[in-house]
Computed example of a mutant assay.
Amino acid sequence: MKNFTFNINENSYGVKIVSHEDNVIELEVNGTVYSVKMKETVKTVKTPTLVRKPASSTIEPIKINPAASKTKIVAPIPGVVLSINVKVGDTIKVGDELLVLEAMKMENSITSEKSGLVTAINVNVGQQVLQSEVMIELE
């Protein structure tokens, strides 16, 4: 089955496992066969099976409070700003693309969920943003 070499007190021992049944193992040490009885049954090692739990909740899009006078557009995920499609002073309506954010090698269009006037742009093209970082402010 398996061969091992042990060095004990500068003596070399060649050990071969001949058979293994329950808690009895037959060994051959330097040509001499020994039967060894273990105190406990040797457990066979099983390969673990990885099981993923289903996602507990789905990711909800960021909802904007329609009653608020100022609206902050925040980054939904960390990424890099690829393009900004509005400028300060622009009037936008619901569904207009504000900017494109690259995250995990995918381009994500950030659109407006509220009509309004762009009052501030807090990011630049090529800038890295963290999740929940304010990118654009609307009024």
Rank of each mutant, 00 (worst) to 15 (best):
E10L: 06
V94F: 07
V123G: 00
K87G: 04
V134C: 10
L98I: 07
V15D: 03
I64W: 08
I62D: 01
L101V: 09
V134Y: 06
Q131G: 10
T119K: 05
K114M: 13
T44I: 06
S109G: 02
V134H: 11
S109A: 04
N23L: 04
E133C: 03
L82D: 07
I110N: 07
T5W: 01
N7M: 02
L82E: 11
S12K: 11
K16T: 14
L27F: 03
P66F: 05
E97Q: 09
T111K: 15
K70Y: 05
L117F: 08
V86T: 08
A75F: 04
S19V: 09
E28F: 12
T91Y: 01
I84H: 08
K46V: 13
I25C: 13
L82W: 08
T111H: 02
N9E: 12
D96S: 00
V100S: 08
G89Y: 06
T49E: 15
V86N: 04
N124P: 02
Q131P: 05
N11Q: 12
I73D: 00
I8A: 12
L138V: 11
E26Y: 12
I25E: 05
L101H: 07
T44D: 07
R52V: 05
P76H: 07
T49A: 11
V94E: 15
V29R: 05
I62V: 02
N122D: 09
P61N: 12
V51F: 08
R52F: 14
Q128H: 12
V15N: 00
E21H: 13
L82C: 04
D90K: 05
G126K: 13
G14F: 07
E40I: 06
T119D: 01
G95E: 04
S132P: 04
T58Y: 06
A67E: 06
N3L: 01
E97S: 08
T49W: 06
M104Y: 15
T49R: 14
V125Q: 15
E40R: 14
P54S: 04
H20P: 00
P54C: 00
